[in-house]
């Protein structure tokens, strides 16, 4: 019995430390996208991106509401929701992925920047596709921030551009991700 309880104690200790392992998150991440054609420049920002970085398991996850994208032109925003992303049907976009790098010791150091590779799956407009991207993780003034950018094709996510608007909307969209001041999850 004594042996068992010591193992139990060890297990308890082990699992508690696992739970307490560092998770970083933000509810106010920034995702912007750009699509440019010779006629029209389409830009929008979502300032309420939810992002969680699990340092223990190297996992990363994003979630955002499509309706949270703000455009310069309100009518463009309405068409984005109604005609392209169909945000009534597909209100969310999510990303689930993993870092390739296990070396997160830098999080404890000041003024460091590392580049990590991320691979995972992006769910957008009801379609899930694998994507990869490089991300920069920076520690500065005791805060951790992360940034990345990638390009996706609307056709991959069955977002159709009507023939009439072929010259206004580019199939290729650049996405910039900026997570400033990641908080430690309690």
């Amino acid at each position: 019995m004594k042996k068992h309880s010591s193992v139990l104690l060890f297990l308890l200790f082990f699992s508690v430390t696992l739970v307490a392992q560092k998770k970083l998150f933000t509810k106010t991440g920034l995702i912007t996208f750009n699509s440019k054609t010779s006629i029209e420049k389409i830009q929008a920002v979502n300032k309420k991106v939810l992002a969680v970085l699990d340092v223990a398991t190297n996992k990363i996850e994003f979630a955002l509401l499509i309706k949270g994208f703000e455009f310069e032109k309100a009518l463009m925003q309405e068409h984005f929701n109604e005609n392209y992303l169909e945000s009534d049907k597909f209100p969310k976009a999510t990303f689930k992925g993993k870092f390739d790098d296990t070396n997160f010791t830098i999080l404890a150091e000041e003024n460091k920047t590392v580049t990590v590779n991320i691979s995972g799956s992006l769910t957008l407009h009801g379609v899930t596709k694998p994507i990869t991207a490089k991300a920069l993780i920076t520690t500065k003034n005791k805060t951790v921030s992360a940034a990345s950018s990638l390009t996706i094709l609307l056709s991959d996510y069955s977002i159709k551009i009507p023939a009439l608007n072929k010259n206004n909307v580019n199939n290729q969209v650049q996405i910039n991700i900026n997570l400033a001041n990641l908080q430690e999850m309690k």
Partner: peptide, 8 residues
């Protein structure tokens, strides 16, 4: 899911 429970 890492993000569950964090949604507004």
């Amino acid at each position: 899911s890492l993000v569950s429970g964090l949604e507004d």
